[in-house]
Simulated assay, not measured.
Amino acid sequence: MTRGSTARSVLIEEPGRHRLVTGPPAEPGPGEVRVAVRAAGICASDREVYEGTRAPGYVRYPIVPGHEWAGTIEAVGEGVDPSLIGRGTVAEGFRACGMCERCRTGQTSLCTAGYEETGFTRPGAFADTVVVPARLLHPLPDGVDLSAAALLEPAAVVAAAVLAAPPSPGERVAVVGAGTLGLLAVQFLAASSPGELLAIDPRKRPLEQAAAFGATATVTPDAANALHGRYDLVIETAGAPTTARDATLLARRGGRVVLTGMPEAGAVGIDPVHLSVSQLTVSSVFGATPAAWSYAVRAFGGGLLRPADLITHQLPLESFGEAIELVGSGDPEVGKVLLTP
């Protein structure tokens, strides 16, 4: 929340260097709203921003990070309905132009006008307040848990994957990786009545969570080698060096694979001969479209998603450094880490 006439934000001035800054809260311009942030999640891409390993062109320093968030609208700019004040909300991160060919087809995350995203090139939500275009808002039902709603950004990414290769009841489905994206994927997919729902991860605790969310089987990556060629649909969420390749090997001939993880340079490539011979359909997801956001918000409001169960740590803005270390610690007991202004 704002403190009188001032607001705080975490500013990464350059890789490895951050500070907490205080100043007047930004005023929303025409078509914009200012949101009091309730909670903002930290993910691996935020750590990349802090460490300076995010791909060139996809971050602009100095930057206030924070692209996974939820809060309450507290002020509106010219042309925005004032009845929105007081509403809980989330918002899309991509600042698409809305005019180019890709935007006109609904593929806003592929906007050809150039990459702009809250928390990477525009001030984000590791702050008391964040200002965003009202056209990007997805207001939430009254009374929802706003801390849990901070996970609707990764949920929207998973929703985009499910929309890209929609599951059918009775299919054999596998999820590679049981981090935040993977566990949200298990929840989405369990609602589609799969005949089999497998979760793959090297860590014990995430696999236990996956089983609680509806996975019918859980295995480690080594054990998954015996299951190659079995699954109608495979959703990859880990972004580890071998997981894109592994996902294609798990798919049956004629199966579908959706890649959502973001591997770093040097990851193992996918065998083109295997793709051709197996006639696989491979899709990838970068961000989420408005349709995917709407799907995720509806699923959350309807109780199909339980993102609150993924949260293990909630820290104040002052503890940003500690939160970043937690996310990169590799500790299997660390789930979703939130900053709570």
Rank of each mutant, 00 (worst) to 15 (best):
R135Q: 10
E101H: 13
Y231K: 00
P154D: 11
G303Q: 07
P56L: 09
A191Y: 07
I85E: 01
V37Q: 05
I235F: 05
T289H: 05
T180C: 12
A267Q: 09
I73L: 07
E32M: 09
V334E: 00
A224W: 04
V277A: 11
I235M: 02
H228A: 15
A190C: 10
R95G: 04
V80F: 05
V334W: 03
A96Y: 15
I200M: 12
L233P: 00
A323P: 02
V132H: 04
Y115K: 06
S109D: 09
A224L: 06
V80G: 05
G71C: 10
I200L: 14
T289M: 03
P332L: 02
V176K: 00
G86R: 04
A217F: 08
S83R: 14
S45I: 01
D81T: 10
E333Y: 04
E51Q: 13
P290T: 07
D81V: 09
L280V: 08
E74N: 02
P25C: 04
L304S: 11
L84T: 05
T105K: 11
A7L: 01
T129C: 06
R306D: 14
L181C: 12
A148S: 12
S276W: 11
A156G: 04
H138E: 15
L315V: 08
T237Q: 01
K336A: 08
D145G: 04
S276D: 08
A70N: 10
L233D: 02
G214H: 04
V130H: 06
D246C: 03
F213G: 10
G335T: 07
V132R: 05
E117R: 15
A224K: 03
H138K: 13
R3N: 14
L227D: 10
I200H: 12
R135L: 09
G77V: 06
E325K: 12
E74A: 02
Y231M: 07
L163F: 05
P82A: 10
C43A: 12
A215M: 10
T243S: 14
P272S: 07
V268R: 13
R19T: 14
V131K: 04
I85T: 10
R256A: 10
H313N: 13
I311G: 08
L136T: 02
P290C: 10
V234D: 11
G31A: 07
Y61Q: 08
G239H: 01
A160Q: 15
L304M: 11
V186I: 15
A226D: 11
Q209M: 14
A291Y: 04
V21E: 14
L151H: 11
W69I: 01
A150I: 08
